[in-house]
Structures are given as structure tokens and as C-alpha cells.
Design a protein around this nucleic acid. Structure first.
Lengths: 263, 263
DNA sequence: TTTGCTATTCCACTAGAATGGATGAAAATA
DNA sequence: TATTTTCATCCATTCTAGTGGAATAGCAAA
């Protein structure tokens, strides 16, 4: 054995932290969600850079628990048990039933698409939606996840955080949008987030999709943290026509939900 | 050391299986979902009969990963990360987008509430819903979970399994429904499930809620396993009026979805 | 006050999990 | 066909993380 090799490996891969079982489990799930289609255990192992022996055992255990399912002989995919917690989490959010009622109210008033969005780390998640009455259709579905910097709601969802923290999240998660018009500079984004949150309103035009606009207001709890947002999604032309009416309506809805969840 | 003591402890506490981290993690999540509201770490430990030292550490790790969140100083609740997998699982079901289109079609045709339901172990889960045009409102929300024996869809979702297996699932999960009219006998349920699945249709009246009826058809894949169901939920009076039309419509929709997911 | 339950942290012990290989079979590629 | 890549299982070694207690508060009822 050549000592050089030993010392080299020691310095180049210094102390590869040993992972916990939960770490590996979540890595497997993340690998699958990122890849967006079934993968074999071997592929998963390669994707997350883990020893295949570890992954084979982890996968076995996850299958037993219903966290994974076999979509073919080799290929693995997310398991049905994942719904249990995810969907329940959503329903049991303390503001959720209140928010739903107010969504419908806002929908009756405006006829446009209404969304409730929440945050998971650096991504915005669509929690609930009512589609607009018109022919204008938004493709996003409940569960859709987009980077926080793409949407008006996304910025609001970070508005309550200290600017430094918001900046770090934007730094790790901000992505260029398909239209290329979404801001990606963490400093600027953090400032905007803070300002919009303070105003209690955020408006955005074509940042994520062409001719799609969005008016969002934060839903804050007693601690003034932004728990979620309520927003109207509509075409840019529509927005230009009746902006003042709609902003007022969104503000009112957010206020109504806040009033109820704060008792 | 007295040998008697040793042998005694060995026989009285034989081999308490040591749990894996994933086991404990899921137990914590299950404890919270069953309790349906936040709990302290200590309470969780008692609820699942685990050493509190284990749970405190597990909880700590789960918090770090966003699987749990603190709802107050002591109390813990499900974390936002759970949405990630749960909602994504639903969206990425290969039949989901096809099913949604067909749901809308069926809704246009009938004007009634349309649901797509799936199975998680012994429970039926509402995966998607469009509410009916009339004033008749169903309280169930997307994500709602009810025992398989309460609904027409529930039975279909087990119809492809060997009768023995279906019986076991009904045995562990069947519950009396609020109306008391849902069948609870595992043998009978398994037989019904098989028969309904063979027919490709299941109809139910007031089993789970008074004056609520349901017409469901299975969505089967190439292997003839029941992946999901599509159903019309309506009032019993409505059902009686136009049963034949509606059953035909549900059947057609299920067939349309199947045709597309089988290529 | 005492008593009893809830809540939290510490510690020694060790079962068993993660690791990093190695070894072949199967499948894909040339 | 030969060759490479993918897949799957095995093993010895390392050391994490589950276990069962004990210790310590805090709090409420008796």
C-alpha cells in the first residue's frame, strides 16, 4: 500500500458524516421526487451517492412501511402512505377550513381563480385552489411547488423573517423563471419580501408565466408570522382593468381569515 | 449475580424487538394523526409506549428535517415537509391528469359531485373532487379518509385482491359507520367487494351518511388491480330519479380513463 | 406539606444500522 | 459475439442510535 494514497483519501474525503436512517429515507424520497419518475434502487443509490447496500436495506424497510411501492419489477415509486400525512397536514391546518370558506367568498365576488399557498423551506406550495369561471385557465394544481421568487405569494411567505434569513433562503432556492422575468438577486428579493409583507400586499405580472398576474395578501397569525397567503390569479389584461377593486377584495379576505384564526 | 434472576428476566421480558429509527418516526406521525391535535413529546412517548429518551431524540431529529413543527412551547404537530411527498405523490399518479379531465367531463354531464378515490391500507382516501352544481353539499374534503367498508368506492378498491386478503383488511379496518348501516362483517364485505369489482360498479345508499348515495366504478390497470375509483356522490332522491343514466355515465368515464392509462 | 403525574435531560450499554467493499448475475451496449 | 453497465446480495468493521433506567424539576391535587 502506498502511503500517499492513504493520506490523499483522508484529506480529500475527510470525515464523511455517517447518516442516520431517517436521513437516508428522506434522501430516497427526495431523489424520487426530483427525478419525477420511478427509479431502481441502484439508481437511487447512485443519485444520492450512498452505498448501494445501505439503500437496498433502506428501500426494503420503506416498502414494508408503505413509504415506497414497486411500480415494476425493479422500479420504485412513492408509496400511498405518504398521502396520509401530507393530505392530513393540509386539512388540519388550523386556518384551513376558515380559509376555504373565505376562498369561496372571494371567488363568488370576483369569479377569478383563487389560491391558498403555503411554504415548505424555499418553495411555495399550492394548498388549495378554486378555478375561475372564465376561460382563463391556470395550469397549476394543488400540490404544485415553485421557487419562492417566482410568485407574489412566495415573497410574502418570507416577509416576516429577519432579512438575513430571507436572503439565505432566496440564495439557496431562487431560480430563474421560464419567462426570465422573476427577480433572482437574494438581496433585492429579501428587501421586496419585507416591504410587501409590511404593506400586506404583493402584486406580480408575468414573473413565472406569460400574461399571468397575481394579487396576493399574507395570512398572519398572532406572532405576525406569515402562515399562508390568499391570492387571485388572473390574466394581465384582467388585472389592469380592475386592479383597485381586486386588491381591496384580497386584502379583505386575508383580514377576515386572520380575524378568525386569532380568535 | 444470581442465575435465577437472569433466567427470570430472560423469560419475563423475552426479546422486546428493538425498533428502527424509521419505525419510531412513523409511530410519532401516526400518534399525532390519530390524536388529531398537537401533543407534547412526553405524551407521544406514552401514546406509543416507547422510552421517552428515544422519543425526545427522534422528535429532535424530525424537527430538524421539517417533519414536525412546534405549535407551542411543548406541543408538536406535523411539519410542512410532509406536504412535499404527499401532494406530489397524488399529482404524479400516472392516471391523475387523465382522471381529472374525465372528472370534469362527468361533472359537465351530470352536474353532481364527482370524486376520485384511492386506497391507503385499510382506508379510502379522497384524492380529487369537483363539487356539484346543486345545493347538495358533501362535507368530505380532498384528503378525507374513511374505512373501506363505509363506501362503494372502498369496496371496489379491494375487489381485485384474493378474497382472503380482502377479508383480513376488512377485519382489521372495518368500522361501524355513523348511520350504523355500513356492513362490518369481513366475510360478507369481501364477497361484496369481489362481486362489485367483477360487475365494474358499486352503488351505496346512506351507508356512511344519511341520504347520501354514491355510484362508483373501478379504474383498473393492465394487471387488473384497482388503482382508484371514480364516483358520483349525490342525494338518495336524486339517485332514485336517474339511476340508470348515471350508472352508465360513471361506467363510461372509468372506461375512458382505463383506456388511456393502458395505452 | 406530601403525593403523584408530567416533563426533560443524562448516562451506560449494546443491538443492530450504515458503511465500503467484494462478488456475480442480468441486462444493455458495442 | 465481447464488453460495459446495471443490479443485487453478501460480509467484516465501525460506531450510531434505541433502550431502560435514574435524576430533576414543575405543577396540581389531596
Amino acid at each position: 500500500m502506498d502511503e500517499n494514497i492513504v493520506s490523499k483519501t483522508l484529506t480529500e474525503f475527510p470525515v464523511r458524516q455517517r447518516q442516520t436512517g431517517l436521513d437516508r429515507t428522506l434522501q430516497v424520497l427526495d431523489a424520487l421526487t426530483e427525478h419525477e419518475k420511478p427509479m431502481s434502487a441502484y439508481r437511487i443509490a447512485r443519485a444520492i451517492g450512498a452505498p448501494s447496500s445501505t439503500i437496498y436495506r433502506t428501500v426494503e424497510e420503506m416498502l414494508k412501511h408503505g413509504l415506497l411501492s414497486r411500480s415494476s419489477k425493479r422500479d420504485l415509486w412513492l408509496g400511498p402512505r405518504l398521502m396520509r400525512y401530507g393530505l392530513l397536514y393540509r386539512i388540519k391546518l388550523d386556518f384551513f377550513s376558515e380559509a376555504r370558506k373565505e376562498m369561496e367568498h372571494l371567488w363568488q365576488k370576483t369569479g377569478e381563480t383563487i389560491q391558498i399557498c403555503g411554504r415548505d423551506e424555499g418553495m411555495m406550495v399550492v394548498l388549495a385552489m378554486i378555478e375561475g369561471k372564465g376561460h382563463f385557465r391556470v395550469t397549476s394544481n394543488v400540490g404544485t411547488r415553485v421557487p419562492l421568487n417566482w410568485t407574489a405569494s412566495g415573497k410574502l411567505l418570507l416577509g416576516h423573517l429577519p432579512e438575513q434569513q430571507a436572503r439565505e433562503l432566496f440564495l439557496s432556492y431562487a431560480q430563474p423563471s421560464p419567462t426570465g422575468r422573476a427577480e433572482t438577486d437574494p438581496d433585492l428579493l429579501a428587501k421586496q419580501a419585507k416591504a410587501d409583507f409590511a404593506t400586506g400586499l404583493s402584486i406580480q405580472k408575468s414573473d413565472s408565466e406569460y400574461s399571468v398576474a397575481c394579487i396576493a395578501a399574507p395570512i398572519r397569525d398572532r406572532d405576525n408570522t406569515c402562515r399562508a397567503t390568499i391570492s387571485i390569479v388572473l390574466s394581465e389584461q384582467q388585472l389592469d382593468k380592475k386592479e383597485t377593486n381586486l386588491t381591496a377584495a384580497v386584502r379583505e379576505s386575508a383580514a377576515a381569515i386572520e380575524a378568525r384564526i386569532r380568535y
